[in-house]
Lab assay of single mutants.
Amino acid sequence: TYTYKLTDEEASRRAEDEWRNRGYDVRVRNNNGTWEVEVR
């Protein structure tokens, strides 16, 4: 499981799409203004 911490929502969406396209399960959540993109 990888977790990315990003401050930019758009960057988190791009990361989400990119990993999803590669067949990974992705979750995005906002934690106090930081976007966490979790990849498994």
Rank of each mutant, 00 (worst) to 15 (best):
R40Q: 10
E16G: 10
E16W: 09
W35Y: 07
G23V: 00
R27P: 04
L6M: 14
E36Q: 05
E9Y: 12
G33A: 02
E38V: 13
W19R: 00
N30T: 06
R13C: 06
G23S: 01
D8G: 07
T34Q: 12
R13F: 05
W19V: 01
R20E: 04
E36L: 12
E38D: 06
E38R: 05
D17E: 15
R27W: 11
W19G: 02
R27E: 14
Y4F: 15
D17R: 15
R29N: 11
W35H: 01
Y4N: 03
R14Q: 11
Y2S: 06
T7P: 15
T7C: 13
Y4M: 09
N30S: 07
G33P: 00
L6V: 15
A15D: 06
R29K: 12
R20I: 07
E10M: 11
R13T: 05
E9L: 09
N31P: 03
W19K: 00
E9K: 07
V26W: 00
R14F: 10
D17I: 15
A15K: 11
D25T: 11
W19D: 01
E9H: 07
E18A: 11
T3S: 07
E16H: 08
G33R: 01
V39I: 11
T34I: 15
V28A: 04
V28K: 03
V28T: 06
Y2T: 11
V37A: 02
G23Y: 01
E38M: 09
D8H: 04
D8W: 04
R13M: 08
Y2G: 05
G33H: 03
R22K: 12
E36D: 04
W35D: 01
V26C: 00
G33K: 02
Y4R: 00
V39H: 02
Y2L: 11
G33S: 03
T1M: 11
A15E: 07
T1W: 15
R27A: 13
G33M: 03
R27T: 15
W35R: 00
V26Q: 01
N21T: 10
G23K: 01
N30F: 15
R29C: 06
E10W: 09
T1D: 07
W35N: 00
T3D: 04
D8F: 04
E9N: 04
Y2W: 15
K5A: 11
D25P: 04
E18T: 10
V26H: 01
N32F: 06
R13D: 03
T7Y: 15
E36H: 06
D25I: 13
T7A: 15
E38I: 14
L6A: 10
D25S: 10
E36I: 14
Y4W: 09
R13V: 07
N32Y: 06
E10S: 10
G33L: 02
R29L: 12
R27C: 12
Y2V: 13
Y24V: 04
L6T: 14
T3K: 09
Y2M: 11
G23C: 11
R40G: 08
R29E: 08
E9T: 04
L6F: 15
T3F: 11
K5T: 14
R40L: 12
R20M: 05
D8P: 01
Y24F: 12
R27H: 14
N31A: 07
V37Q: 00
R27S: 15
A15F: 14
N21G: 11
T3I: 15
E9Q: 08
V39K: 00
T7R: 13
A11M: 08
V28H: 03
V39E: 01
R40V: 11
G33E: 04
D25G: 04
E38W: 06
R14M: 09
T3H: 07
N30K: 10
E16Y: 13
N21M: 11
V39Q: 00
R13Q: 08
E9V: 07
T3A: 05
R20Y: 04
T1E: 06
N30H: 12
T34C: 05
V28R: 09
N32L: 06
Y4Q: 05
A15L: 15
D25Q: 12
R14I: 10
S12E: 02
D8L: 04
Y4P: 03
R20P: 01
L6N: 06
E18C: 14
R22S: 05
R22Q: 09
D25H: 12
